[in-house]
Design a binder for these strands. Structure first.
Length: 557
DNA sequence: GCCGTGAGCGCC
DNA sequence: AAAGGGCGCTCACGGC
């Protein structure tokens, strides 16, 4: 059963059963308590819900403890279709979609709406739709149009799978924000005090940092140097007769000067202080939970982004603050070396597929092609996927190309496409954006001037690196989106009471009662196998997804 | 005082 | 020949 739904202010809404799989179309139903209506229909029919945007509807349902199993999200589907057609920057949202459908002027998009408080009510109805379209009619019409269009596209089946996976991801993201990542503020604070000194009054430098700043100044002969100001550091070294191109940590590491050691320590501690210090704790952790705002598909490649909280950059040292509640466990799972395995499956490279049969792909790769040197093997692999050839990468790539011609050929074809300004696609049809007008100008320049030629080649290569990486990164995002959908459904069915609480590119955390930990581990493994089968069919490539129950995220690896 | 930019570094 | 991919966040700075 498929039910379209729109929200009103004051907790109300309208819905309508759509004709689907033998079920006839129903009348428009108006309700003053949408959450109750959804809860009731969910329990009786487990329908697919159809709505404009998960983020506009689902947080308020969750706030009323209403969860749904499946939905279709028009905004995500719309973006996937538009970008497939090379129209990445066209406005998104229901208003824009209905305007396109009716041939009306397309209203400008205001970007994703910010949500700065916990949802208690549904958002009041947003701006009026173009042509005074009725919102429920608009949802239904736009959905029908999407179904029509997707059938005409080259990746129809894959895109339908991607629609479902992206919608499930949006549900999972809202639930992650709702349940929150367990975060022990006391553990975090102790770590801050131990490494930085006591919390200073009103944003002053913590004691440890102040001491280091003094040592840095002393090492430069007593002249004030602001360690937070890179150009000042470069100038300070110049006064000492040392030429450095920048104040980056890896550059300073090669310099022999008494200021280097305190500078490097300062950088490390200052980073912790500004990015994840006391003020971060104040703004982002409440009642033992960290609740970041996830942006599903926020990155062109389909990876997630976050708004505020830097949830995808939690430093390793802080992971000890992520602790399961008493009587609960965190099940941590990460896909080992996901991207090279994705490349193996995309390219069907027989020998590379054999290499990916092992749990540690790089060790096997090293034995196969790099005299057992795992470091070189990894470097070569990353260079192939990122486009690097500096330093040792060049010769390593030569070896890789000889041993695994189809795998290397796959990314090089993607790079060539980018250099020529063509689009590339992921396994399920995510599509790279067309290069900018400035890029076309730079590369289309028939001017034979040396500068113009250099600029043109550089722009072309840069875009080639982007598309080279895109095919791998975006296909990995396909796999993880399907994984999230599968895992979410499995947990809902056989490990009720467990929650997905964190997701980061290729790893997930599930918070569950202790006695469910084994079941959750098994479901993680099964979800990984399901994702591999759905995305890559019968590929022999293995995608190991190891799940371990832990008390603290820090114990996961 | 606001805003955009570049440097730098955290994560994958 | 040489070229690492994607993000978010904060700071200092310079322009207004």
């Amino acid at each position: 059963m498929l039910i379209a739904l729109v929200t009103h202010a004051e907790n109300g809404g309208r819905l309508r059963v759509l004709p689907d799989a033998g079920v006839p179309e129903g009348p428009v139903v108006e309700t003053s308590d949408l959450a109750a209506a959804v809860s009731d229909l969910e329990a009786r029919h487990r329908p697919r819900w159809l709505w404009a945007e998960t983020n506009e509807v689902y947080p308020a349902l969750l706030a009323r403890s209403v969860r749904v199993e499946r939905c279709q999200d028009l905004a995500h589907a719309e973006y996937l279709v538009l970008s497939y057609q090379g129209r990445h920057s066209e406005p998104r949202g229901l208003g824009a979609a209905i305007a396109r459908l009716r041939g009306l002027p397309v209203p400008d998009d205001h970007g994703p709406r910010k949500r700065d408080t916990q949802p208690t009510l549904f958002e009041p109805e947003q701006e009026r739709l173009p042509g005074d379209a009725d919102p429920l009619d608009a949802v239904i019409a736009v959905h029908a149009e999407q179904q029509r269009v997707v059938a005409t596209l080259g990746h129809a089946d894959q895109l339908r799978l991607l629609f479902a996976a992206e919608a499930a991801s949006a549900l999972a993201a809202a639930e992650m924000t709702h349940f929150g990542l367990p975060w022990r503020a006391d553990v975090h604070e102790k770590l801050l005090v131990d490494t930085l000194g006591p919390r200073p009054a009103n944003g002053a430098r913590p004691r440890k940092l102040a001491e280091l700043a003094d040592r840095i100044t002393a090492a430069f002969g007593g002249k004030q140097v602001n360690p937070d100001h890179p150009p000042g550091i470069v100038r300070a070294f110049a006064r000492e007769g040392i030429d450095v191109p920048s104040a980056r940590a890896w550059v300073l590491k090669q310099v022999d000067h008494p200021a280097v050691e305190p500078l490097l320590e300062y950088k490390e501690l200052a980073r912790l202080w500004v990015a994840h210090g006391w003020s971060w704790l104040d703004s982002w952790v409440a009642e033992g939970r960290f609740r970041p705002d996830y942006v599903v598909g926020g990155v062109v490649s389909g990876r997630w982004a976050t708004r505020g909280g830097a949830a995808l950059q939690i430093p390793r040292t802080l992971r000890t603050a992520v602790r399961a509640d008493p009587g609960w466990k965190l099940v941590a799972a990460d896909a080992a070396q996901l991207e090279p395995r994705v490349l193996a499956a995309l390219s069907n490279d027989r020998r590379f597929t054999e290499v990916s049969g092992d749990d540690d792909l790089y060790t096997t790769l090293a034995d196969e092609a790099f005299d057992g040197d795992r470091g070189r093997a990894k470097l070569a692999m990353l260079s192939a996927m990122y486009g690097g050839t500096g330093g040792e990468a060049g010769p390593a790539m030569v070896v890789l190309r000889r041993k695994f011609p189809e795998a290397v050929g796959y990314v090089e074809a993607a790079a060539l496409a980018g250099e020529q300004g063509r689009m590339v696609r992921s396994r399920l049809g995510r599509t790279s954006p067309p290069p900018s007008e400035a890029w076309r100008e730079a590369t289309g320049d028939t001017d034979v001037g040396e500068d113009a030629l250099r600029r043109s080649r550089r722009a072309s290569r840069d875009w080639g690196r982007f598309t080279r990486n895109f095919v791998v990164q975006a296909s990995a995002a396909d796999w993880t989106a399907v994984l999230l959908g599968a895992l979410r459904r499995r947990l809902h069915q056989s490990a009720k009471g467990s929650h997905l609480v964190f997701f980061q590119h290729d790893e997930v955390l599930v918070h569950c009662p202790e006695e469910l930990a084994e079941v959750v581990c098994a479901e993680v493994t099964a979800a990984g196998e399901e994702a591999s089968r759905l995305v890559f069919g019968s590929t022999p490539v293995r995608f190991p997804l190891k799940a371990v129950p832990v008390d603290s995220y820090a114990d996961a690896k």
